[in-house]
């Protein structure tokens, strides 16, 4: 398995021209990004009044996720630290405005101006200390503080992350909660290692009835009936779990029960090895005990 990009180089260097090129040529990357953006937008749960809103795309890269926002008719502003990726976004003629900025230094927006924020696979980069002056905790704090400030009251942020481990996940979540956000983590496809996706769903302001967390997806990825959020979800979950465990149990039972032949063979082996305390073979050897024993 290829090592994580976060471990290779800082984002502004890792996403160079050749890496950025992949985001226009690889249909696989494009499809994944579009799917994630679609889901993040769903989690944003904007009021269903058809009004276009001003959305932030944090770590917009080549603007693939922004395209989803444009399709829904919203106006967006994208931020990224990699110039090469932004160049690709220019080439693709994305509709949103682009800013070259480091989110670990905080977002420079006026208070209460933004109606929502999405981010696809960007936040885990904040956990790296690439330079001696970088402290992940301070950078996360600066980011979430400024995000909280920029968002309008009650606005949401849906941030998809690829945490390296649980500690990192906890660090990101705690940093968000400390800045006053309510909300929490939504884990899609929790039973699958590869399809599992973490979405940090934050609501600006204290928890309320309206800020209930959206439900996670549990069915199989790519299965349309499974990705339906409503009916049948729970059943599907139990089925997956049962299927996973049943064969394992069976195998264990088989290997535990050993017959008379096996016992006789083992005793013979011991005798051949020169052990003198091996009991003799009788009609009782290897026989099953009665139930009332």
């Amino acid at each position: 398995m290829a090592s994580r990009p976060e471990l290779q180089a800082p984002p502004e260097i890792f996403y160079n021209e050749s890496e950025a090129r992949k985001y226009t040529t690889s249909s696989r990357i494009i499809e994944i990004q579009a799917k994630l953006a679609e889901r993040a937008f769903e989690l944003l749960a904007l009021p269903d009044d058809g009004l276009p809103r001003l959305i932030l795309d944090i770590g917009c890269g080549s603007g693939l996720s922004g395209e989803t926002l444009s399709e829904k008719g919203h106006v967006w502003i994208g931020l990224d630290i990699s110039e090469a990726m932004l160049d690709v976004a220019l080439e693709r003629e994305t509709e949103g405005d682009l800013l070259l900025s480091d989110i670990g230094q905080g977002l420079g927006f006026r208070p209460g101006t933004i109606d929502g924020a999405i981010s696809i696979s960007a936040l885990q980069w904040l956990c790296n200390a690439d330079k001696s002056c970088n402290d992940p905790r301070l950078r996360l704090k600066a980011f979430f503080n400024s995000l909280y400030r920029s968002l309008a009251r009650g606005a949401r942020a849906a941030l998809q992350i690829y945490p390296q481990n649980t500690a990192q996940l906890e660090m990101i979540t705690t940093a968000a909660m400390r800045c006053g956000f309510s909300g929490g983590l939504v884990v899609d496809y929790p039973h699958s290692t590869r399809a599992k996706k973490y979405f940090l769903c934050l609501v600006c302001g204290p928890a309320s009835v309206n800020s209930a967390l959206p439900r996670a997806k549990v069915g199989m990825e790519g299965d349309d009936s499974g990705s339906d959020l409503d009916s049948g979800d729970e059943e599907q979950q139990t089925v997956t779990v049962a299927e996973r465990h049943r064969p394992v149990k069976k195998r264990k039972l088989e290997s535990k029960i050993k017959g008379r032949a096996w016992v006789l063979k083992k005793k013979e082996q011991r005798r051949n090895h020169g052990f003198s305390n091996v009991p003799r073979d009788t009609k009782y050897t290897g026989r099953k005990r009665k139930a009332h024993f």
């Binding site: 502003i77 405005d97 800013l99 006026r110 933004i114 920029s150």
Partner: peptide, 21 residues
């Protein structure tokens, strides 16, 4: 950059209290 973005953007340097416009 459109003026929409300009109108939302303020200076983010540490210690700056009035970085807009």
């Amino acid at each position: 950059m459109r003026l929409l973005t300009h109108n939302m953007l303020s200076c983010n340097i540490k210690g700056v209290t009035n970085g807009f416009p």
